[in-house]
Design a protein around this nucleic acid. Structure first.
Lengths: 204, 204
DNA sequence: GTGTCACCATGACAGGTGTCATACGTTCAG
DNA sequence: CTGAACGTATGACACCTGTCATGGTGACAC
């Protein structure tokens, strides 16, 4: 056989990051090559070390786990991606799979499942939380366009119309149009309500 | 010497619970007696096993870590309590210390610090995150009046000016005045920003 | 008793927000 | 090739929001 399964870990909470590394290092057939607190650094590390498996959180600074997944899948398809997240949102699962993730594991699953999932993902087997897998069929589809989603996310974080317009080099009117569209698609009545709704569904 | 330090762990996120247990079990002088997903069960376990140290999260189902700390401190004072939480809020730290906690460690600290904190706490030494310890003295006082706090909280949850006015039997102008006051007291520029700030400081 | 403060109110104003109608270029599927 | 969907843009309108000035009440403290 080809030696240990080489794993890189991306997770922003430091304590959890260290603890997961310890957990995985116990396994004789798994080797943790490195751990990183954000998507950007994890991506660099994947480029350098070409691990067998990348375990990544979704909500992280600088680059989300979903973006990271897409990049890794595109640039280094030999590296399999296992998402490890708190969020049991069908929207996230769908986007993770679309982005090329091989596994989707929840943080409230037993820790014993992690090494198992790593092994299976490293062999190219899909590993998806069974409850979520069924839910994904009955879930509504994200009605937002890429642009609407981006703008709604940032507006929800408190950026003003003017700031958004400037930083995206759009007119303020255009920004308001996108928000208006998003608001009506989500049945909300303000940008903040819309952002909350979308977040809950996992669309941001 | 008196053998290993016996530890009980209370943490609701299953994956983290398992990973922390693995992390601690690596240490030759520490023994994890049991791990529990909520405060009630942890309390029972403390009663049974009388561990040297109880590590507990704050936000947990059934009984919060702060309640748990108070009970354990009262009933089994030989068991030292180490709080392990995401929240760097002076308010939580103060309440934890008042409840009799011996340590307060943040989840974004390096995982290496955990076993160290356990050892020190087991010896009766206080272990408090240094940044937080200073902050607790300089912590600002809540500048909001009762009315401002109430209205800001509900506005932050998405209630509109009109809804607030109707349900509180105030004029819309009055509601806007309170919000305006709160916004300026908190140095914010919208009601939502103000609500977020206040929430972060633990004032809502 | 005279301040001070929380509470409540009104009116007015500037600026922000959500909506609507309309339009143009690009891309991609049929 | 045509239409649909998307991203972009403008202008105009009604309404919402935050601010400010100003004033009234009652409670409590000095």
């Amino acid at each position: 056989m080809s030696g240990k399964i080489r794993v890189i870990l991306a997770e922003d909470q430091t304590m959890l990051r260290g603890a997961l590394a310890a957990l995985l290092s116990i396994e004789p057939d798994i080797e943790v090559t490195g751990t990183y607190p954000d998507g950007e650094r994890a991506l660099q590390a994947v480029a350098q070390h070409r691990p067998d498996v990348l375990i990544t959180d979704i909500e992280m600074p600088k680059m989300t786990g979903l973006e990271l997944t897409a990049r890794v899948h595109e640039l280094y398809p030999e590296t399999r991606v296992l998402i490890l997240t708190t969020f049991a949102r069908p929207g996230y699962l769908r986007r993770a799979l679309d982005a090329g993730a091989h596994g989707y594991l929840l943080k409230d699953r037993p820790s014993e499942e992690l090494s198992d999932a790593v092994r299976r993902v490293s062999l190219g087997v899909r590993v998806v939380d069974p409850d979520l897998a069924t839910e994904i069929w009955s879930a509504e589809k994200d009605p937002l366009t890429e642009r609407e989603r981006l703008i709604l996310r940032r507006a929800g974080d408190g950026e003003s119309t003017a700031e958004l317009a400037k930083s995206l080099r759009l007119s303020e009117g255009t920004v308001r149009n996108y928000l208006s569209e998003a608001i009506s698609k989500l049945g909300a009545s303000t940008r903040f309500e819309a952002a909350r709704t979308a977040r809950m569904k996992g669309w941001l």
